[in-house]
Amino acid sequence: MLDPASAALLKHQPPSAAGGRPEIDRGQLRGLFLDSITKGTVRWDRAVSGVTPLTDGTCRLHFGDGTAEDFDLVVGADGAWSRVRPALSQAAPGYTGVTFVETGFDHCDTRHPDLARLVGNGSMLAKGVGRSLVAQRNSNGHIRAYIAVRVPQDWHAAAGIDLGDQRAVRTHLLRMFDGWDESLRYILRNSDSGFTNRPLFVLPAPHTWEHVPGVTLLGDAAHLMPPVGLGANLAMLDGSDLAHALVTEAGVDDAVRAYESTMLPRSTEAATGSAQGLDHLVPAATS
C-alpha cells in the first residue's frame, strides 16, 4: 500500500511462507478446467435465452436459436446477468457507485521497470477519497491495473467523453488524479492497452429464493458481489459443494436443497464482507 501523494510505502504484507494464498490468472484457470473434461462436453455457440421449470421437477432450457432441451438439473453459472436467475428470483444487480477503469502493461519488467518495481510480485494499492489505483502482477510479465473511482454510472456522458476516445479518457483520468505522485500517474499516462469501463454491480445481500426443483445457481449468478478477491473462489467452492451433494444425497432434489442450505448463508456473509472491502478499497467522502 502506497501513499498517493508521495508513493512512499505505507504497508507491506509479504506472502506467507506456507504459500497459503496461491493465485492464478483467470484464463489459465479456465484452460485447466476445459482441458480436464472430455472434448465435446462443452457445447459452444448454444446461447441460453431462458429457462422454464417443469411440473415433473425437471427444467427446460431455451436457446437463442429457438430450440429447447429438457434436463434433470439446470445450474445457472452464467454470471452477473444470468439468464437462469429469473426462474428463481426477480432480483437484479444494482450499481454500487464505484467504477473500475481497466488498463494493462505488457513486458513490464523490460518496458515498464519502474512500475514493475512499484507493484512488486503481488498487488499494489494507493487510495484517496473517492478514488484509488490498483495494480496486480499477472503471468507472462503482464500488469493489470484498475483506476477505481466513485462516480455516477454515466460519468463519461456527464463529462462529455466518448469512451471510444482513449486520449480523452486518459486526459480526464489524469485530471481526476491531479496531485498524485507522478510514479503512480504513470499508470494513467503510459498503459499499453486501452481503457475499459467496468461499472461494478452487485445483487442484494442477502439474496435468497424459495427452492424450485430442477434449477439452482452458483457463483456470480447466485451472489454477485464487489470484486475484492472472493468471487472466483466462492464459485469454485459452490461447484465443489454442489458436486459433492449430488454424489452423496439420495436424489437430485435432495442434493440441491442441501447445497442451497449451505451456499446461501455463506454467500450472505461473504457479500457483506465484500461490500465493506469495497468501502475500504475506495473510501467515500465523510460529511
Rank of each mutant, 00 (worst) to 15 (best):
L9C: 11
T55M: 09
G231R: 07
D238P: 10
T96C: 02
A47H: 10
G104N: 02
P213I: 07
Y95D: 00
W81L: 07
A148T: 08
V74C: 07
R30I: 10
G50D: 08
T171D: 15
D35A: 15
V75I: 14
H211N: 10
D114W: 00
G160M: 09
Q276K: 15
D162I: 05
A68V: 09
M1N: 11
D238A: 10
Y259N: 08
S123V: 13
R85T: 09
L174Y: 04
S139N: 13
T208S: 12
L234I: 10
H223M: 06
V134P: 03
A159N: 08
T99F: 00
C108A: 13
P22K: 00
L118I: 08
G130M: 00
D106G: 05
R85E: 01
R131D: 04
R170V: 06
D254Q: 15
G273S: 13
Q153G: 07
A116K: 04
G94D: 12
E182Y: 00
A8Y: 02
A158L: 15
P53C: 07
A245M: 05
D238F: 01
A92E: 14
L115W: 04
S240W: 12
D165S: 01
F63V: 06
V228G: 04
L278A: 09
L237F: 02
P206W: 01
V252Y: 01
G219C: 07
V84F: 05
D254V: 07
L217C: 02
A145P: 03
R266A: 11
A135R: 04
V98L: 01
M263Q: 11
A243Y: 03
D78I: 08
A275H: 13
V202C: 14
W81T: 10
G219Y: 01
I187G: 03
K39E: 15
D253G: 08
H244F: 09
I37N: 01
L230D: 12
M263R: 02
G273H: 10
L234G: 00
R60E: 15
W209E: 08
K39G: 15
L237P: 04
E260Q: 15
A245E: 11
E102R: 12
G214N: 05
T38N: 09
E69L: 08
V48W: 04
E69Q: 14
A91T: 12
A77M: 03
I143D: 09
N197D: 13
Y95T: 02
R137N: 06
T55V: 13
A159K: 09
Q13L: 15
H223I: 05
Q90A: 15
L32A: 06
Q276D: 11
I147K: 00
L61A: 12
R111A: 13
T262A: 12
Q28Y: 09
D162P: 04
V149R: 14
T96M: 03
D279A: 12
D220E: 12
A7Y: 05
P113D: 03
R43L: 12
P53K: 09
H172R: 13
G277Q: 09
R167C: 12
P86K: 06
L173P: 08
A271V: 06
H62Y: 03
R131W: 05
R46A: 10
Q90P: 12
D114M: 08
V149T: 15
P206M: 08
A92R: 14
D56A: 06
